[in-house]
Design a protein around this nucleic acid. Structure first.
Lengths: 250, 250
DNA sequence: ATCGGGGATCACGCAGCGTCAGGGTCAAGG
DNA sequence: CCTTGACCCTGACGCTGCGTGATCCCCGAT
């Protein structure tokens, strides 16, 4: 029969944790003295080992209680499920890291950037041509307004915007390769990010956002940028997603 | 000037989130009507884009506020630091997944296991010899008590214990390869896990735990199991760590 | 005037404890 | 016997990032 402190030291946890486990019914002391002291016996220590084992696997305490208290519980299925959760978390973190790397690269490269330019890395004449095309498509006023707005960003902001666009593009391409439905939640979520991205320098309504989608399809420059040559149909896929988004969310 | 709902829809977040950001001072409305309504202008929308961008990178809200509000803030350093955090989280998850995989493998293999045996995969005669040696080392009573305790585990429990031991061994070997100090926090943390592992079937005091360390050094069987042949000195390293742990924590 | 669709402000809930605060208990030494 | 000092207890708030009501006010359209 050990006291909380003894158990805590042996198990490498805190006294508070034992109190907590008692409070939530995960691990109750074997006996409680007349003074109210908690005393733990061998049985409780063994259970604690199990608890700590699963805890080290990242299983939530409620789940641990389920595993240990339900004799009919299938630990194999539970572990596999938990494994899948961990895998997806890793995937998520990796995506974040990639985005961060791109952002860092942009920041390092553009440390001496002297004007705010979304199209860093694009030749000036190409950029001018894009501008003319954009003006024909949406009108001079809209383009000028967008550019004015864009000039209010500082260089970290511009770098962040670029990196985010890269990430969005990668997501679109991945979803397209996977054969996702443009109207599916996953694709629409990315489309929402894209809408937010566009909103950096522009605040399109539904019709304008659909128009942007068409622009992606029709403009060969964008076709080249927005999809690999190995992904024919990707711009159409994105345009379809944008049309759905415009209908549903704008 | 848009209302909460309009902003929320455009940004793909909830109204509650805007309330929250207002409450914590991360994003305040540009104007507040006499009726108390929140109205957001272009400036606030731009700031919201930044916020959502960093949020998608997994940066905590307090950190985002720091980035956006401190003009002297170094976004490059912040991103690198955050990147490191994410990397370590991935490493942690990978370790967990490896442990889970081992556990799953054990469970699948031992689905038809009919008796509780820690030494699954070890020939019976070897096991018997280990038992005799253990009896010589600690005495028959102690060994019998440990075995009795071991028999109270069911097969998932046994599998979990095995998997955990594999993980612990891997950690010890890694730390040894890295030239870690047996008294360092990292090594002591693993030693604590090892102590807890041992406690599955036994509850050694300081002297007994030190003795177990010596056993690992002296017993050729354990030397072979506990370290690769490429890691001479690893058992001594573990024994040293166990001695320190016994002094400090038991 | 009414009604539907917002808007607002509390305020609890969740996960897993950390961290006081305020107050008994126990074993050992003066 | 009394005093330490080390431990024990029970609240209860804090942290993260909102979700989810509950309750009440407001605005434009019919």
């Amino acid at each position: 029969m050990r006291t909380v402190r003894q158990v805590a030291r042996a198990a490498g946890i805190s006294v508070r944790t034992l109190h907590h486990y008692d409070a939530i019914g995960l691990l109750k002391p074997g006996h409680i003295g007349i003074n109210g002291y908690r005393y733990y016996g061998r049985e409780e220590l063994l259970r604690l080992q199990q608890i700590l084992f699963y805890r080290e696997l990242g299983v939530p305490l409620a789940g641990i209680a389920a595993v240990l208290d339900d004799p009919a519980f299938d630990p194999l299925a539970a572990l596999r499920e938990h494994r899948a959760v961990l895998e997806s978390r890793i995937g998520h973190y990796r995506t974040l890291i990639r985005t961060i790397d791109r952002t860092i690269a942009s920041l390092e490269k553009d440390e001496d950037m002297n004007d705010n330019d979304y199209y860093t890395g694009v030749a000036p004449e190409t950029r001018d041509r894009w501008q003319r095309e954009a003006e024909e498509f949406w009108g001079k006023d809209a383009v000028a307004a967008a550019q004015a707005k864009a000039r209010t960003f500082n260089k970290e902001q511009v770098a962040a915007i670029q990196a985010e666009m890269e990430a969005i593009r990668a997501d679109f391409q991945r979803l397209f390769r996977e054969g996702a439905d443009p109207a599916s939640d996953a694709v629409q979520a990315v489309t929402g990010r894209h809408y937010r991205w566009v909103s950096h320098s522009w605040t399109p309504d539904a019709a304008a956002f659909r128009g942007l989608g068409r622009y992606y399809v029709e403009n060969p420059e964008f076709r080249g940028t927005y999809n690999d040559d190995e992904l024919p149909g990707c711009p159409e896929f994105i345009a379809a997603a944008m049309a759905v988004y415009a209908d549903r969310s704008l």
